[in-house]
Amino acid sequence: MPGRYKKYKLSEHKLTCVSLITATVALALVLLIGKSNVALLNPKGWVAWQESKLIVQSVLIMLIVVIPTFAAAFFISRKYRQSNVKAAYTPEAVNSRTTQIVLWAIPSVIVAVLIFKMWNGAHELDPFRPLHAQEQPMTIQVVALQWKWLFIYPDLNIATVNFVQIPESTPINFELTSDAPMNSFWIPSLGGQMYAMPGMATKLQLIADTTGDFAGSAAEINGKGFAGMKFMARSSSRGDFNTWVQSVQNSSSTLTWPDYENLAKPSENIQPAAYASVQGDLFAQVMTKYMPEHTHQ
């Protein structure tokens, strides 16, 4: 019976080839990534930093099992290949109970460690949980529209579109809602995303540790303008931030409800804009559009 199968042997030659290919691939990846920003591993705020730490540490913990598994797969395949007649062969052997207990214990222990880290992470990095910092937190309301982001600064009574400026080292309390299909608000350099949903308000606490311009996007598919629905999050020093607020307030435009309804109409690839003042509690008004009191639809 066994003679019918062609012998298969992993030769030294093949091994060299595999290592060479691996090296080439690694080199290619380095070249491909080049100077691009791997945002998730290059965090610019405490939240993103904790999240990237969690990712990296979890991977390292998993490697404790994964690397030996790969090694075992490789060496077992090699040693017990059919052509190696010298190796032990126990065709009827079934594992002992002890072996099975060990096989269950290994992943259980690793997963238990991961669950411990996960549990802490989920609580510590709960997007609703206020951040602690020297500076007083600032609230920015965000409305997802088809297909642009509207930012309202309730304390400063200004508003912007597809651009948000924040002072560095200040906890930002983003309040999110949507006047469009569901959406997801994401600034990878500062931290993870949160959904913006019609008729509901969600929260996302972020902080920027340095100054800089960070890309933000809509991460959940929401129609044909999806890809163009991105914005710039600019973190600046407190002084620069105040100057910017001044310049916005000095412009003349006001965001009234009719203006808002105009803005809310579907449009794509919108350039950043700013409003010197906002009429009324616009955010609450947008929310009530989906409440029963607002029946004249």
Partner: peptide
């Protein structure tokens, strides 16, 4: 599966 990591990796 880790919520805090998923916030970044989701979508």
């Amino acid at each position: 599966a880790s919520p805090a990591a998923d916030f970044q990796l989701h979508n």
